[in-house]
Design a binder for these strands. Structure first.
Lengths: 217, 217
DNA sequence: GTCTATAGAACGATAGAC
DNA sequence: GTCTATCGTTCTATAGAC
């Protein structure tokens, strides 16, 4: 029944994958408007018309790209959190471990369907700051449920805090994570070249310490 | 000698100001690439050719816009910090006050040369995440010196920390500030509509408490 | 499935009348 | 200083040969 190229292709999705990889690279550099199909297809070494054949439109390519990158990360987050909840049951999971399950999948970026030379961190940073018109529904689709899940677990770990306090501080924690992802490239400038913005292990560790301390105040 | 319209016009910069105001509004919504001169001039109710007459090019308009918005904020930051240093001399300024001088001018946004209905917060959030090619040098021009100034004062307030620790934690503090500015619109979503993303006074206060606690760990 | 070729619209920038 | 008109380019998307 399903013969459309948008369905699950069984053989040789090579072109499709090449386009997704190139799109990620080009989008990471300049965002949606700056990502022209000419640049993407040139980068992917495929024909200009291939994008519309495989994805239908530029916007659909964009949606496929985001799904391709965000979904594995969020899936990993849920999985890690579930593991930790089980491991600590019936006690609540310590705050620093909860935040580690939130931050680590983003920073390692493993589990991505197509881990090219593309900088996943940059794609996410760019996506999070795209104009509202283009990314309407992005936040809800990828983060609304996840946020609730995490806040619920944090509330269990910090029963003395009111739901409102949890919401404010979780918002600030996520803001720190996102700001760190976006500003990562400027760490070297700020430190006069002494600190390495590419050393994600250290940044991840510093971020966790900072956020947990900020949250507990 | 100076007859160029790019010089300091003495009378009726009304068109120029209208263009700057409209450019801020349009840029805030969609970033540089999405900001078309046609949209800007339509919004400003001036002719399409007026942009090139007053600014020379779209890129120059962009630079003028950023200067117009960033410079007053940074000027106010320096001024507030100077005041606090003087008020506390010869003691160091408390950390929470240092950060208040960094955050408050950004959130209030007063002192802007043209405070239209334009959302200054959004302009800044967008500018900070523009593609590196377009904003090359932006960070250095507007933030490099300011960062040094603030880190120097923070080091005075926290003499027990190493310069490297100061750099990491200041980076994380700035990341939190930027992330908060960018994600502000999502506070309502995260809190299921219970918290108001527009209430900048509360957010500013929560941000300060969070960052100071995160910094001191 | 992959190409070439091109339609149709929008873009930044400029020339020249007033 | 402000207009109209337009040039040359680039964009997304599609039609149709192979």
């Amino acid at each position: 029944m399903e013969t459309s190229p948008k369905g699950n292709c069984s053989v040789s999705d090579k072109t499709r994958q090449r386009i997704l990889g190139a799109a990620g690279k080009v989008f990471a550099q300049g965002g949606y408007r700056a990502m022209t199909l000419r640049q993407v297809t040139h980068e992917a070494k495929v024909n200009l018309a291939a994008v519309n054949y495989h994805f239908g439109s530029k916007m659909n390519l964009m949606r496929a790209l985001l799904r391709d990158r965000f979904e594995p990360i969020n899936q990993q987050r849920r999985q890690l959190l579930d593991q930790q909840v089980e491991a600590h049951a019936p006690d609540p999971v310590p705050l620093s471990i909860i935040y580690d399950t939130l931050f680590r999948p983003l920073f390692t970026g493993i589990g991505s369907a197509s881990d090219n030379d593309t900088n996943l961190i940059q794609i996410i940073g760019r996506a999070l700051t795209e104009p509202a018109e283009f990314m309407r529904g992005l936040h809800k689709e990828f983060f609304a449920d996840l946020s609730k899940r995490f806040m619920s677990e944090i509330q269990r770990s910090c029963p003395e805090l009111s739901p409102e306090q949890i919401q404010y501080r979780f918002f600030l924690s996520v803001s720190t994570m996102i700001g760190t992802v976006i500003e990562q490239v400027h760490l070297e400038t700020i430190s006069d070249g002494k600190l390495d913005g590419k050393n994600l292990d250290i940044i991840l560790n510093e971020l966790n310490t900072f956020v947990v301390a900020g949250f507990q105040q």
